[in-house]
Amino acid sequence: MSSLEISLYAVGSLTLACGLLAMGVRNLVHALLWFGLSLMGTAVLFAQLGASFLAGMQILLYVGGVVMLLIFGVMLTREHEHLGAVREVNHRIRAAVVSLVLFAALVMAILHTPGLDQAPGLASQATAGVTLDQLAVALLGPYGIAFEVLSLLLLATMVGAIVLARKRDPGEPTGRKPIGRQNLGKQRIEGLASPIIALPAAAASVAAIATVQAPTVAVQAQAPQTTEPAVSEHESPAEQPTDDTTDAPVDVAAAVALSAQGDQP
């Protein structure tokens, strides 16, 4: 066993211990702190594997961003105070059994796979690590499309998160609109309007992605124009389904109208 392996095992078991604690403790804030530690352990592992940039990003994004966000989430929902974060004992035992079986299966698979530890042809180069230059070239070169898609995804996430978490105005109607004949006609037109707006936007995005060379700016410039006004003017789409789930039998006409309504981004 090489020294690298030993250190990997050491750091890894620490990381694992932190993760287990994060999953096990009853206090959610404590769990989050243990989780943060576990993330740091992973960062160390990254560093050991020659991915120092990634280790940095891990700490920045995860420990700095995600854990903080989650702590905010816990604070916002004020649930941690009077209830434990974990379920009853029998549930935990069941969960443990399932995960242990899964683990056993994985270990079996790993141990039965030959040649994992034999030095590969590129091993020497690999252990030398990947430079930041190489990474940058890879990201903007061969993986350019993925990069672009990711940027779109982030944008969508942003919009989605805003829409979802936006607090409703007190004057805004909560239920779905009563569907009269007049309303139905109007809603149909509105329902038609939203795809008319959305479709070109989607088409443009796809076109932009398809051409790798296309400047990122163009995509970003186009998308907000089409989606943002809709968001600010209409009800949030995600609220609609939650309303639907409460009353089971929905008239077909009403359902059509609703989906038309829901189409409005």
Binding site: A22, A85, F103
Partner: peptide
């Protein structure tokens, strides 16, 4: 895989 299984355990056992 150990970390992953710890995650699975958490996923199944967390209430919050």
């Amino acid at each position: 895989s150990a970390l992953f299984c710890a995650g699975v355990y958490g996923l199944l056992s967390q209430r919050h």
